[in-house]
Design a protein around this nucleic acid. Structure first.
Length: 215
DNA sequence: ATCCCGAGGG
DNA sequence: CCCTCTGGAT
């Protein structure tokens, strides 16, 4: 295939995926910024479907940052056990909750600058919370799906999530920064899967440098 | 670069 | 069995 400019490629990816996944947003179940923050911490290397099986119990047990911070860690570990990394995630949940109480009056901050100071929260998690709880496009959440699809589609050749985020931010209009992650994630789950991508069903196949290549 | 870690799919 | 899942800290 003739090599297309990354900017044109990015614009067409956005344009073609939007009608496919128009009504779909994050797959995580939540109501408040605190719930989304905790659900996103749990989502590391775990399907959002599984996160959604433990968060109803977690959210029923803890209603604010102070209650997370004061809890017996063993109680949280038991609830979130099936999500994997349960010791690290429990530490992140409680250390973040403590930081919210001590530095943010118990509230979830709404800026990248503040969010990434929370232990266990880096740019990916911060971007998810910023967009889905506060409607802010400060960056692009780059997870395993966004990384894989960006590379397969020829939008970047980088491996590092922060570098990929920076490149995508240069290719796409700011108002689409939050949306592009959701679109790439849903497409990654349903069509462009890691193991065996279903290129025969993909609406991007004709503009994808990796189509039918088993990348 | 390595570690954390359970669960489901192929 | 091996790979993957909305990562982050050391």
């Amino acid at each position: 295939m003739r090599r297309r400019s990354p900017r044109l490629q990015a614009r067409d990816v956005l344009r073609r995926l939007e009608p496919l996944y128009g009504q779909l947003t994050t797959g995580l179940t939540f109501t408040t910024p605190l719930e989304l923050l905790m659900a996103t911490i749990l989502s590391a290397q775990c399907t959002d479907e599984r996160v959604n099986t433990v968060t109803p119990t977690l959210f029923a047990m803890f209603h604010n940052a102070d209650e997370y911070a004061r809890s017996d860690p063993a109680q949280i570990e038991t609830i979130i056990h099936s999500c994997g990394f349960f010791r690290n995630k429990t530490k992140s949940i409680q250390a973040t909750a403590t930081a919210l109480v001590e530095r943010f009056n118990g509230d979830v901050p709404n800026t990248m600058k503040d969010l990434v100071t929370l232990p266990g929260v880096a740019r990916k998690t911060a971007n998810v919370v910023l967009f889905h709880s506060f409607g802010r496009n400060e960056g692009i959440a780059v997870d395993t799906h966004v990384q894989r699809l960006s590379r397969r589609l020829g939008l970047t050749r980088e491996q590092d999530a922060v570098k990929i985020e920076r490149e995508l931010m240069l290719l796409l209009p700011r108002k689409s920064w939050g949306r592009i992650s959701d679109l790439l994630i849903w497409h990654g789950r349903r069509v462009c899967s890691a193991r065996s991508p279903r290129c025969g069903e993909c609406v991007l196949a004709d503009i994808c440098p990796s189509a039918f290549a088993t990348v």
